[in-house]
Design a protein around this nucleic acid. Structure first.
Lengths: 204, 204, 204, 204
DNA sequence: ACATAACCGAGACGGTACGTCATGTCTTGCG
DNA sequence: CGCAAGACATGACGTACCGTCTCGGTTATGT
């Protein structure tokens, strides 16, 4: 016998959920994450505070859902495949760099990251719902490159992706150095060189 | 013309500063960063709140100084140089991995990072006072390796270090995958392979 | 157009109100008015500070309500009417003098007065809710005396009451001279003499 | 053997004292008594806080001295004596009423009174240094009236003065009713009637 | 003439309280 | 019963002052 409140999700009002997520995202953009409060979200969404507390455990979770809903990663992700890995990867990494530079993305994503740092549950949710699909799409492209002989067939693709993306992520997060298109290109070139296919011994 | 109060640092009481930094670090370890308040730091340090506000602009800055004072990076940093870069780098990167796993380091450093994400000033301070000295020590070792012919003399050392450390940092921060000693070794090997000196068929 | 929060009195918790007023009165008695803080009232009443700020504009207003609630002037006030004005007034004025000497009344009432001096709103509230009912009761008795031919029918009763009470009030407030029962009697006699009915030599 | 600081008044800097009193008075006028702080007085006077604490026990005492120094009651006080008590008293009481209405006097004097209410020492100082000389001057005039047969030779002059001034004081302090010149006149007339000389029994 | 003791300005300090904001819980009344 | 509204106890915020305490720098004699 438990006294826990267990709200019935079927009775949930979709309109409230939407306006909460919208308000949360708008506030993070306008006043920043730390100045965004549950109270301000509720007030802006025209919603009672309890309605937020009923469905989300924390401010971080609300903002997480906001960003997720807005990013719309839930649709299938697919990377370009022109046959030229280097060109394709450069295009993709340049797009990532550009995204990080977009103020409309930057604020919510920094907020997301600052929560993920502390909250292992959010981190897991992030991996599963945001990172994993993208990760898998990238690997599809890389396997295609392996099949085309542009990449070492034994390359550890997880490691490769880390070497490619972690430096970008770190530069953006810690602002250690400017994030430029040239940097993206340089990373792609360096990493591809590292995982280049073994030089085919042309003669016996 | 400014009305800002500019307290005179020469009149600052060293004892207060010390007990504040100590209290801040202890609280972050004991109750976590977000539950550490300026008020609790002041109270634990036996200090008036104003004494904190007089010398630091934010909780983040206090914790930053705590970590800095505790880490003692201000002393010269020097890396081992046994003549074998790979062995030396593996030792150093394994130490980094171990440090990240130490609960006594983890909490304050996660706190630090969560502040740095938002606060560009703190990020700059971090770069200058914590990262830069260590970075420089690492480069000294790498240049020594270049001189010894163990590394491409044209290698971009900044990029090399990013490829080496950013993946570790990202795994730790986002908990994307376990941080093991083997992973450290693998990273060192991969990166050294990338920046290996060109095979000069000098003489038969 | 006003952005002011206007709390809904119907949702007010009576229990909180009561414990706040009780705590305020107790604290003024125990530690004095100036050492009584909103914070200490809240803490003693087991109430959040905001609950005080929501319903009262200032410490003075809280203490005012405390005194008012305690004095219970809101009930009808009625003065003795034995048929002998002089005796009745002496009794009433002696009671006033005694009240001023009672330490349990003195502290809160001095507190009240010190606030009223500065705060015209409080002064108005004092007149309307504390002074007026008593004033009216006194006038009822005086009119009865006029009807009985013990007082000049043309006497300005407001003036009469001021001449009677202001000296007592002043002596108490400024401690210019001891407040004794004899003094009360002397005042009554003097003032009654001033407003005695004209000697009408009606018939021998 | 005492460790008490006993500052040597002979070494006191007159300039500091003056600027403190001046600053105190100005602040009470400008921002009101309760918003006047020791710190603001010191700052405005260009004086260290300690210099105030060295010579005065409390804010009330400083303001008291300010008002005293400004009022300049220390000079001899003398009331008009035209031979007509009623006219003279009306003139004096009207002046008092006017003074109370003057904003430049009102603020500091309300401040004074609010301190006197709580602080018996200040009350005594007030009586001795401000009230007494004026009181004595008034009595001189009244005795002259007694000698002139305009006043009952047995009149209790203290009581008379209380009946004359307390109502004015009360009206001003509590704002119970407007303080007009007519009111002053009415008071004088009423009180003089009360203490009129006994009707001389013209025939035996 | 020169120590030496005080006052003095400045302001850092450990505190208390301020009045505001947000938290997460609870209650009320509407639909 | 979900919900908007919002009162509530709690607790932290950042600020203002409190009264005490150094810190140098003038005075201002007193030998």
């Amino acid at each position: 016998m438990s006294t826990d409140r267990k709200p019935d999700p079927s009775r949930r009002r979709q309109q409230s959920r939407d306006s909460i997520l919208e308000a949360a995202l708008a506030l993070v953009l306008e006043v920043g994450y730390s100045k965004t409060s549950i109270e301000s979200i509720a007030s802006r969404a025209g919603v009672g505070k309890q309605t937020i507390y009923r469905w989300w455990p924390s401010k971080g979770a609300v903002v997480f859902d906001s960003v997720l809903a807005h990013a719309g990663v839930e649709d299938g992700v697919q990377l370009p495949d022109t046959g030229d890995v280097e060109a394709d990867l450069k295009q993709v990494l340049r797009a990532t760099v550009a995204e990080f530079a977009d103020p409309a993305f930057e604020a919510p994503i920094r907020a997301l990251n600052s929560e993920i740092i502390f909250d292992a549950d959010l981190a897991a949710a992030y991996r599963e719902r945001m990172a994993a699909p993208v990760e898998e799409a990238k690997k599809v492209r890389l396997r295609s490159a392996q099949a085309a002989g542009q990449l070492d067939p034994d390359a550890d693709l997880d490691l490769l992706l880390e070497l490619l993306y972690a430096p970008v992520y770190q530069r953006w997060l810690l602002r250690t150095a400017p994030l430029t298109q040239e940097y993206a290109d340089q990373l792609v070139e360096t990493v591809l060189r590292t995982f280049a296919p073994a030089r085919t011994p042309t003669s016996p």
